[in-house]
Simulated scan of single mutants.
Amino acid sequence: MSEETSYTAEEVAALLKISKLKVYDLLNKGELPSYRVGKQKRIDSSDLEAYKQRSKGASFAPAKQPLSAPDAQPIMYTSPDAGAVRDRTLIITGQDVSLDILARHLERRVPDRRPLRSYASSMDSLVSMYRGEADIVSVHLLDGDSGTYNTPYVRKLFVGQSYVVVHLLKRSAGLYVKKGNPRKLTSWADLAQADLRFANREKGSGARVLLDEQLRLHGVKTAGLPGYEEEMSNHLAVASKVASGEADIGVGSEKAARLVGGVDFVPLIQEQVDLVMLKKADNRPWIDGVIGILRSETFRNELLHMEGYDLSRTGDILYES
């Protein structure tokens, strides 16, 4: 296959003889890299070939994949000139739809770079940046002791490095409960109720850190909690588990609750989503471009049409080392 060829999700589904939903699942998990052209996701033939080789068990390096510390593997590229490919890309991590919009704006604002989306969790995203495998990392990690988001984790990991933390947005987070809230769950303290069945996110995700911090602060031991060890990769899966009656409670964002029938949402915290970028000489032009996009009226107007976002401080520099 030619490296210049790219495919739509529908074409990949036909080539691999799998369902389109399966292709989107691979894209969302980062197992099959993609980039956006207008409103359409495209998959390069080299990335598709790399995925096929990995599926066959061949020793073929993935183009990029979600990272899970401490067993994370370096992101590799299949192009013969891997260094040149990496230099042309900007890898943006995180699952919020605002990052897809940011990637689209970057295509126009920084035309010499190609934005690529990775759907890794907050903690895995920071690890990938530490290893030089991500450029624009989105994080929403609560530090329960200080009550602040993100900077405590960033400062501990990037000791001695120069970086900038820029605010993206705030969004409501809290509890997913069965329609009508039969267990009367209204606060973090209710996590201590007996016999609650949990729907949980994967380790390293912002929702998992939020749950774990609240369990710790309220003296609830995780050992033996029904459903706690079963992990799901996104908010929709957690909300759906609660809606189906397989779980009594889950933690996530309000946006997902609106998309799932049979579930109510109990707002408990304004979750802060920030972007982290390393300050290097070659990065400065596109970092300025990212900040300019976040502060632009065009970008904000696109997000204003999506309910649940607080954009009052979007584009503010929160910390700079």
Score class of each variant (00 low, 15 high):
Ala9Gly: 12
Glu10Cys: 01
Ala14Val: 15
Lys17Leu: 05
Lys20Thr: 14
Leu32Cys: 04
Pro33Gln: 10
Pro33Cys: 09
Gln40Leu: 03
Ala50His: 03
Gly57His: 08
Ala58Ile: 08
Ala72Asp: 08
Ala72His: 04
Gln73Leu: 13
Ile75Lys: 07
Tyr77Asn: 05
Ser79Val: 06
Asp81Gln: 05
Ala84Tyr: 07
Arg88Leu: 06
Leu90Ser: 09
Gly94His: 01
Gly94Glu: 04
Asp96Arg: 02
Val97Lys: 09
Arg113Cys: 10
Arg114Ala: 15
Leu116Met: 11
Tyr119Glu: 09
Ala120Ile: 09
Ser125Trp: 08
Val127Pro: 08
Met129Phe: 09
Tyr130Val: 00
Asp135Arg: 04
Ser138Pro: 06
Leu141Ile: 03
Leu142Val: 10
Thr148Pro: 02
Tyr149Arg: 07
Asn150Glu: 04
Pro152His: 03
Tyr153Val: 03
Lys156Val: 00
Ala173Gly: 01
Lys179Gln: 15
Lys184Ala: 15
Leu191Pro: 00
Ala194Trp: 04
Leu196Ile: 06
Ser205Glu: 11
Ser205Cys: 11
Val209His: 03
Ala223Val: 07
Gly224Thr: 05
Leu225Val: 13
Glu231Ser: 10
Leu236Asp: 13
Ala239Cys: 11
Lys241Gly: 10
Ala243Ile: 00
Ser244Gly: 13
Ser253Ala: 15
Val260Cys: 12
Asp264Met: 13
Phe265Met: 14
Ile269Asn: 12
Glu271Asp: 12
Asp274Glu: 14
Val276Pro: 06
Trp286Pro: 10
Gly292Ile: 07
Ile293Pro: 06
Leu294Pro: 02
Glu307Trp: 05
Tyr309Glu: 11
Asp310Ala: 03
Thr314Phe: 02
Glu320Phe: 07
